[in-house]
């Protein structure tokens, strides 16, 4: 489904180019949900923006279904790091906007819309503005917005962070619920190891800047909410933690 080959991205900084990610190779198959985890500034958001077709100036090859990324022809749902809701439009307008842009106002699936807002428990907030919502509600609204689009590829940038532990678990569970109904190919970014283990079928560990793939693994504990207490979980958590930190030690020894 997704094929990334030797991907590098440079930003134009004030004093020369800044390499955000370097030589990333990655394959993600159809219907898979992939967690990208890494330290801050490691180019996670950059990677997602390349997949979303927002960053076009990159080196390497990025193919979705065998074709070069193109927002016009692919059906990509993207939630940016700070939910990206438009604060001067109501919740309902925000949710419908993506589908409206992609397919036109007439083709919005009314029943699916109603089902979604019920599933995500935001029926009572249709007429409100994003400023009148809590953090968790905003994130559920941004989820509704991408799901209504029925994307073929779903990209989420730290969509569950900035929430308290309980709300975060709840939003994750709701997300997994809705996700299981459609099994859309998903790449999500997180800096939370628990989240990567709970939501990621595949876990990709990026290094600190410039981002490289440190490790990529299949996660046997995917979707098992009761697994937080088991020994397997502790083992995996320790392993990921070591990868994230080990890389920092490596970086430190380079200096």
């Amino acid at each position: 489904m997704i094929h990334i080959e030797d991907l590098s991205v440079c930003y134009q900084g004030k004093d020369g180019p800044i390499t955000a990610i370097e030589n990333i190779n990655l394959n993600i198959s159809q219907g898979e949900i992939c967690a990208v985890i890494g330290p801050s500034g490691g180019g996670k958001s950059t990677l997602l923006k390349v997949l979303a077709g927002i960053i076009k100036g990159y080196r390497g090859r990025v193919l979705i279904d065998g074709r070069k990324v193109d927002p016009k022809t692919h059906r990509i749902g993207f939630i940016p790091q700070n939910d990206g809701l438009i604060k001067w439009r109501t919740v309902e307008q925000n949710i419908r906007l993506s589908a409206k842009i992609k397919d036109g106002r007439k083709h919005i699936d009314r029943n699916y819309y109603l089902e979604l807002i019920k599933r995500l428990n935001i029926q009572g907030m249709k007429e409100r503005y994003p400023n009148q919502l809590s953090g968790g509600e905003r994130q559920r609204v941004s989820l509704a917005r991408v799901f209504l689009l029925k994307p073929h590829l779903l990209l989420m940038d730290e969509s569950f962070s900035a929430l308290d532990a309980i709300t975060r678990e709840e939003v994750r569970r709701v997300f997994l619920d809705v996700w299981k109904a459609h099994r859309v190919t998903t790449v999500f970014v997180t800096h939370d190891i628990n989240e990567a283990i709970f939501l990621g079928e595949k876990v990709v560990v990026l290094s600190a800047a410039p981002g490289k793939v440190v490790n990529m693994m299949h996660n046997p504990l995917f979707g098992k909410s009761c697994s937080f207490t088991t020994g397997d979980y502790a083992e995996l958590n320790r392993k990921l933690r070591k990868m994230l930190r080990g890389d920092q030690n490596h970086a430190a020894s380079c200096i």
């Binding site: 927002i54 016009k72 993207f78």
Partner: peptide
Amino acid sequence: IPGEVYEPMYSLGA
């Protein structure tokens, strides 16, 4: 207007 408001639109080819 913050850039992140546009980004989801760009990813749709708006």
